[in-house]
């Protein structure tokens, strides 16, 4: 048996496992040894001041950013491996961005259908049925034929979530998905994410919404300047932080 062979992943092991992950952009060290375990079905929230490396951290998980050192296992598969099949990884890991990034030349429904049809080569009619069901799930029934430019920010973001879900990912990454939204529309997007967490989808959520983190997270990580300062259940981190940096941050955002 080859020594590099990894034992098969089983659902009782962490679905995402980071060990001492380091990443620099030029001379700027953005991640300085990040270690974390995410169990299947868990929702974790990552909080921290802007520039602390939160986006970089979750982008490493679907290989949008290549790490310099350390190990990232997603369902037992090493991401920090030159031979990694990135496309296979990204079929398992969905991601939603702050700026929605819908494809403006396609309708909402086409946005949702595109990846399953062209990437997974699934049957178009079957995908369409699923896409329509997803549009209902994110409560956008009736907006199927609207172009992104005709939708509000909150609606676009929910289409973006549906578009990711259409790939049937095992893990979802959310990078400050409500940061660009009007306060009124933030709620509808958070409601959609809450529903996914309740359905048992593994979610890694970077957010500034502390109330939301307190309600949905199983585990909260506070990051600052490229390190995890402290982590634990939301009531510990958000209500009784031990570290000074965490206290200062929470005072500022609350």
């Amino acid at each position: 048996m080859a020594p590099a062979e990894q034992p098969a992943w089983t659902p009782d092991q962490p679905i995402v496992r980071l060990r001492d992950v380091r990443k620099s952009f030029g001379s700027l060290e953005v991640l300085k040894g990040i270690t974390m375990d995410v169990a299947k079905g868990e929702a974790i929230c990552i909080i921290g001041p802007s520039g602390s490396g939160k986006s970089t951290l979750i982008r490493c998980i679907n290989a949008l950013v290549a790490i310099d050192e350390g190990s990232i296992l997603v369902e037992g598969q090493e991401v920090n491996d030159p031979k990694l099949d990135k496309l296979a990884l990204r079929r398992k890991v969905g991601m939603v961005f702050q700026q929605y990034n819908l494809f403006p030349h396609k309708t909402a429904l086409q946005n949702v259908m595109m990846a399953p049809v062209h990437v997974l080569k699934q049957d178009r009619r079957e995908v369409e049925d699923r896409a329509r069901a997803l549009m209902r799930k994110v409560r956008l029934e009736g907006k199927e034929d609207a172009y992104p430019g005709e939708l509000s920010g909150g609606q676009q973001q929910r289409v973006a979530i549906a578009r990711s879900l259409a790939m049937r990912p095992d893990i979802m990454l959310f990078d400050e998905v409500t940061a660009a939204l009007d306060p009124e529309t933030v709620k509808e997007v958070l409601q959609t994410i809450r529903q996914l967490v309740e359905d048992g989808l593994t979610c890694l959520i970077v957010t500034h919404e502390m109330g939301f983190a307190r309600e949905v997270a199983d585990h909260v990580y506070f990051t600052d300047r490229g390190v995890i300062v402290e982590h634990g259940p939301p009531r510990d981190i958000l209500s009784n932080p031990r570290e000074e940096r965490t206290k200062a941050f929470l005072e500022q955002v609350l």
Binding site: R90, R91, M95, F97, N101, A160, S164, M167
Partner: peptide, 10 residues
Amino acid sequence: GQWESAEALA
């Protein structure tokens, strides 16, 4: 962002 979201969708 268009490149990124397409990449993330594999």
